[in-house]
Simulated scan of single mutants.
Amino acid sequence: MPEVIFNGPAGRIEGRFHPAKSRTAPIALVLHLHPQFGGTMNNQIVYQLYYMFAKRGFAVLRFNFRGVGRSQGSFDHGQGELSDAAAALDWVQTVHPDARACWIAGFSFGAWIGMQLLMRRPEVEGFISVAPPANLHDFSFLAPCPSSGLIVHGDTDKVVPGKDVQTLVDKLKTQKGIVIEQQTIPGANHFFENHTEELIGICGNYLDRRLGIKTDAA
């Protein structure tokens, strides 16, 4: 799990990169929750998603948005963080240029940034959005959503009410050519306390199905 430093639009960005053994392995980018509410690339869910992809042979990067950890710059309310994510994806593609596919996973604020990024990058073929903050941020840019993906949230989430996530899912499901899968975890709050293992299991099983891996590999 080598530490990496690469250039972003606001200066240096700190990350952790797991290289792939195969030259054509897919790549994945994992985005953390809100920087002003303690979000970092070392959040347990971000860490577990990172290893979920690595275990399946991906070249995977997680990183700190501007102003977090050793990443330079300061919080920019999403616009700058989207630029950071684009720079991170550029960096992975430079290191791993023959990747056959690209995935994005994001947690909360990171899910919002990730879904904006997939609108701009046609090479993104799948996404995993954990607790997307549909009540706090505008998701109307997903018109249409270009990729199939998974949305997971907890039914006791007090930060993002289930009805707002449901509205987002219902809107995305009306679009032709993509499939949005939704999973709700009973008893889970916004941070999936005591439910992280269940969350990662759901995400891993979804990824296996998309990749065509038998589920006993999960």
Rank of each mutant, 00 (worst) to 15 (best):
R12L: 06
R12F: 03
R12Y: 02
I13G: 00
E14Y: 04
A25D: 09
V30A: 01
H32K: 07
M41D: 07
Q48F: 12
Y50R: 02
M52T: 09
A59Q: 04
L61P: 08
F63I: 01
G73S: 09
F75M: 04
Q79W: 04
E81N: 06
A85Q: 12
A85W: 04
A87E: 03
A88Y: 05
V95N: 07
V95I: 10
C102M: 12
W103P: 11
W103K: 03
I104D: 11
F107N: 01
I113R: 00
L117R: 00
L117I: 15
M119C: 09
M119N: 12
R120T: 11
S129M: 13
V130Y: 06
L136F: 01
H137G: 00
H137D: 00
F139S: 02
F141E: 12
L142H: 11
A143R: 12
P144C: 08
P146S: 09
P146L: 14
S148G: 11
T156E: 08
V160P: 03
P161L: 06
D170K: 13
I178D: 08
Q182F: 08
Q182W: 09
I185V: 13
G187W: 05
A188P: 08
N189A: 05
N189S: 09
F192L: 12
L199C: 02
G204F: 02
G204K: 02
N205G: 13
Y206A: 14
R209Y: 00
L211G: 11
